[in-house]
């Protein structure tokens, strides 16, 4: 475990930004967004951005044509983003590998120091800090950062820039653990210390009709929830002039599963609404081994029908 002061970190990022495109999260009014960064303004406290990290790994609309891929140096990814990427990697990099998925981005993630009103990762048994999926992870102390290495690339990076770092003291590491417990407990408390057993949720979703009817009837099929979800990966492959083009797509659109003959297994809006939960808590677990929801609550931020997806899960789960 390493330690780096705020000042050193800024200088380090400034140095990196001369070679690579650095993207960082930053606070804008009451929410967080992504921007290009040269190290000058960097503040890693706070919670997840509104837009998920996934769009730095594939574009919402892209020409599938061989070209040199520009990779990003990402600073400020949150645990929920990384958990989403774990699923995306299983989809896009499973055989046959998608050559347009950017797997070479360098990721510096950060422990959440606050949470958004809609955050609910701990409800699903996850934590507001990442355990895996990063090159480096940062925990914010009063005067600097604790840095944990998560990959070979991360290890090499530190070695290359070793003059910016020193070893973290056991006291500092202890502080990190205390801060982590504190934020987790605060979020748990806000969620009334509820815990959902993901293994039992699948069957409850399958059997439930009423809750999906109640909440699904408010859905306007706008696709905000899928666009903004760090786990949703669906796209539509279309024809360009000389190559394929892909656009992000949404299982919440009526025509999504329709075949040319007219058959449509999910023309009913309630079926589409429920399908999204089955995909996340049943199908993905069965096929990719991880759930398709990270509890980031972005779908709640974005929902035009005012649906609180966290409440749907709580209601289906039952008390």
């Amino acid at each position: 475990m390493k330690y780096i002061s705020f000042e050193n970190f800024k200088n380090l990022i400034r140095e990196v930004s001369e070679e690579k495109e650095v993207i960082t999260s930053f606070k804008k009014d009451t929410y967080y967004d992504w921007k290009k960064c040269n190290g000058d303004e960097i503040d890693l406290r706070g919670f997840r951005t509104v837009l998920p990290l996934k769009y730095f790994f594939f574009s919402p609309q892209e020409n599938l044509i061989e070209k040199e891929k520009k990779s990003f140096f990402i600073v400020g990814a949150r645990a929920c983003d990384l958990r989403g990427l774990e699923l995306l990697k299983k989809i896009y990099l499973d055989e046959p590998e998608d050559p347009y998925y950017k797997k070479d981005n360098f990721i510096i993630s950060v422990d959440c120091t606050e949470f958004h009103d809609n955050c609910f990762c701990v409800l699903l048994g996850d934590t507001p800090w990442p355990d895996t999926g990063f090159d480096l992870n940062i925990s914010v102390l009063e005067d600097g950062y604790i840095v944990e290495v998560g990959s070979e690339n991360g290890k090499e990076f530190i070695k290359k820039h070793e003059n910016y770092f020193r070893d973290a003291s056991s006291d500092e590491i202890l502080k990190r653990e205390k801060l982590r417990e504190k934020i987790k407990n605060e979020l748990s408390k806000k969620l009334e210390n509820r815990k959902i057993d993901i293994n039992k949720l699948k069957e409850k979703i399958e059997k439930n009709e009423d809750v999906f009817k109640e909440f699904g009837s408010k859905c306007v099929s706008c696709s905000a929830c899928t666009n903004i979800c760090p786990c949703c990966f669906c796209f539509f492959l279309s024809e360009g002039n000389k190559n394929k083009i892909r656009y992000i797509d949404s299982c919440q659109f009526k025509g999504y599963a329709r075949v040319a003959g007219g058959a449509n297994p999910r023309k009913d809006i309630i079926k589409r609404f429920k399908h999204r939960f089955l995909c996340k808590f049943s199908y993905r677990i069965d096929m990719q081994g991880i759930k398709g929801c990270t509890g980031c609550g972005r779908c709640i931020d974005g929902c035009q029908g005012g649906i609180n997806f966290k409440e749907v899960i709580i209601r289906v789960n039952g008390e």
């Binding site: 989809i91 796209f235 539509f236 599963a257 075949v259």
Partner: peptide, 16 residues
């Protein structure tokens, strides 16, 4: 089975 296959390689989700 006939479904709305788009990417054909298990990525785009259409033929679930």
């Amino acid at each position: 089975m006939e479904k709305n296959m788009s990417c054909g390689i298990g990525k785009c989700g259409h033929c679930a």
